[in-house]
Amino acid sequence: MEEKRFLFLDLDACTGCRSCMAACSLLKEQASGLGKSRLWVPKMDGICLAVPVVCEQCANAPCENVCPTRAITRDTKTGALLVDAQKCIGCKECVWACPFGAITVRKGLAIKCDLCDGDPECAKVCIPKAIQFVSLDDGGFKKKWSSLEKRVKALATIVGGR
């Protein structure tokens, strides 16, 4: 079996430059921008806070569970949750179910991170190493969860208050 790798996002290392968003958009949509990126990096200018958010490829994934047409399935090679464009009806159930806001629906199709088939562009452009593509051995799930906890709290600061 191939080694499973995941995107490790480090709040403390993120400088908020959004290179990842532009790079994601350029690779996936052939145009550089923020609106069509699979990642998002919400920010709060006054305290220079930036929180990288992308699909966590959850083990027990709400998006996969709620999808009425079973359009979301796991890629056995990369471990990424993929959207089957043929089956997706654009109902947005997955958008509501995702706790991280990591899925959008555009032109009737759910769009989310597919780990670039095992070679994610965002990690390549992130020089401060706020986004790393690591294997489970590189610190494992513990690291992943502590990072997630921190990022969710930071996200609450941005979304919730001033």
């Binding site: 403390d12 400088t15 430059c17 290179s19 532009a22 305290i47 220079c48 020089i127 401060p128």
Partner: peptide, 17 residues
């Protein structure tokens, strides 16, 4: 230093908070 900060698409991130 609380954070290193980058301008749009910056690889350097020289700005400080």
């Amino acid at each position: 230093l609380l954070r290193r900060v980058g301008c749009f698409s910056c690889t350097i991130s020289c700005h400080r908070f």
